[in-house]
Amino acid sequence: MSYARKNAIITAAIWAVVLIGLLLSVLLPGPERFVEAEYASWRLISAVLVLPGFLVNAWLGWRTKRGKERGEMDERDDVVARHASQITLLAVGMIVFLAALLLYDVYRDAGGVPAGWLWLLAYGTVAVLSLVHAVTGLLLDLRGVPDA
């Protein structure tokens, strides 16, 4: 397996775990109760959950740099990453837009959205961004990027 594919799989795996953790930390107490004082520790855990993802991203950034120096990654990996970034930006923008619109539709009669959902939307966006980028990069790497 190529160096870039390993990087993408590691990134996708760690951010999938982070995303599941975020979902559970907000959905188990419930988005309405998540902001209550008794769930302060849940909020802390939820925020800290993102940290391993960033640490892995930093480690993979260093690994990518080393891979390029060793000739295990080349210009095609840069092209794939660039295309993946463009697709990710569009896809995550759409996901956030649709999620915000869904929340509006569900809670418009209530006059406000539970803060837990906004917390999940904020932290979830970070996780989804990295996850979609990794998966898109992996798919483009396998399928090929015809135009440089």
Partner: peptide
């Protein structure tokens, strides 16, 4: 790949016409 300074994966993709290389490569 070694001679051209790219990865074997890139050579495979070039053979399958699934990647357009830079002019330099």
């Amino acid at each position: 790949a070694r001679c051209a300074g790219c990865t074997r994966q890139t050579v495979i993709m070039l053979e399958q016409e699934r990647y357009v290389p830079s002019l330099s490569l």
